[in-house]
Amino acid sequence: MSTSEAIVKPSAVATSPTFARRFSISRAKEQLIRLSLLCCALISILTTVGIIFVLITESIFAIPPAKAFFQEVSVREFFTETRWTPQFAEQHFGVLPLLTATFLITGIAALFGLPIGLASAVYLSEYASPRVRGFIKPILEVLAGIPTVVYGYFALVFVTPWLLRPIFRDFLGFDVSIFNAASAGIVVGIMIIPMVSSLSEDALRAVPRGLREAGYALGSTKLDVSTKVVVPAAFSGIIASYLLAISRAIGETMIVVIAAGQSPNLTLNPFRSVETMTTFIVNVSLGDTPAGTTVYKSLYAVALTLFCITLMMNILSQWVLSRFREVYE
């Protein structure tokens, strides 16, 4: 600080007053730019504050004349009632059918997507030659970039009539409805494969070579090194990618809206039509529900539940990464 003053000041005085003025103007300009860039960065904070504000004012506390959802329906009813019938004359607001449907579909997706994603990550990181990797990675990126509405179409038009119905209805004799949780779950699973694969692969590749070579030096085969050395060493990264993928599956909207149907059944039967939290939110906004009614506000209560669940998964994933990370140096 003192050295820069010592250099700048005498020359500014000695040469001309315009230099000093120009210098202070440019200083002010620098500050202005810095401030406006800070504002850009603060917009992301504002977004979070906005989301929380919007969800809470409609569901927990409202601005006085209006009433929030939980001031009309008790929290107890919301979480213990087993019927979700907001559009009927006899209204029941029990979120359990929606929660069950969401977790049923997420469960099917996880069962399907997580192992395949991890196996493909192991292949890309441990087995594939650079050429094969360079060929497969862009294809997985394309798969990750396909809009979910397209996946929804795929589930409804291809998976149910061409895969599920021939196997489970015609061959095994289950009653498979056109809209069902299984097709949505399978396709959500397909959707999360690229995400699990790419995040887990990053974790696997971060395991230092030395560990693998130590494994080989002890006479291990590639299978032993992969499953007993590399995967355990990258475990925190793999779990974090699993949690992120599950959180993504829980918040997935268009696939389930198109393929899983709209009947809020409390069921674990994957071949029946169910309504998830996201489907309900979409259905309310597609209909002509006037703002201010309890049904309209229930949208915010469901969204708040969804937001809390996904936020917890994300935080958990970050915690796993930082808490259980193996640091090699």
């Binding site: 977004t47 979070t48 829980i250 909207t253 996201t278 979409v282 969204a303 937001f307 996904t310 994300n314």
Partner: peptide, 12 residues
Amino acid sequence: NLAGVPSIVYGI
């Protein structure tokens, strides 16, 4: 955290 918020919540 924002990157993990479901898109439907942004819609709301």
